[in-house]
């Protein structure tokens, strides 16, 4: 198992999990969703090939109302 910090919470995930898997576990939406790995953006085209490593921080963001 690999431990990631997903949106601020520690999560045990299967080894080799991809960013696409992490996003898929949170939402089915694509538009308006963005992912940062240790603060750096992961382009959508790289979601299915990017595998977060032990201890990395994954932020999965979406559009909300805001001024």
């Amino acid at each position: 198992m690999t431990t990631l910090v997903v949106n601020g919470e520690r999560r045990e995930v299967a080894d080799g999990i991809t960013v696409a898997d992490v996003v898929g576990s949170l939402t089915a939406e694509q538009r308006g969703v963005a992912v940062a790995l240790d603060g750096e953006v992961v382009p959508r085209s790289d979601w299915s090939t990017t595998r977060p490593a032990e201890g990395q921080q994954v932020e999965v963001l979406r559009a909300v109302q805001g001024g």
Binding site: N7, G8, L26, T27, G32, V33, A34, E59, V60, L61, R62, A63, V64, Q65, G66, G67
Partner: peptide, 9 residues
């Protein structure tokens, strides 16, 4: 305008 926030918050 829109903002970005964590999913599930």
């Amino acid at each position: 305008t829109v903002a970005l926030r964590r999913i599930d918050a």
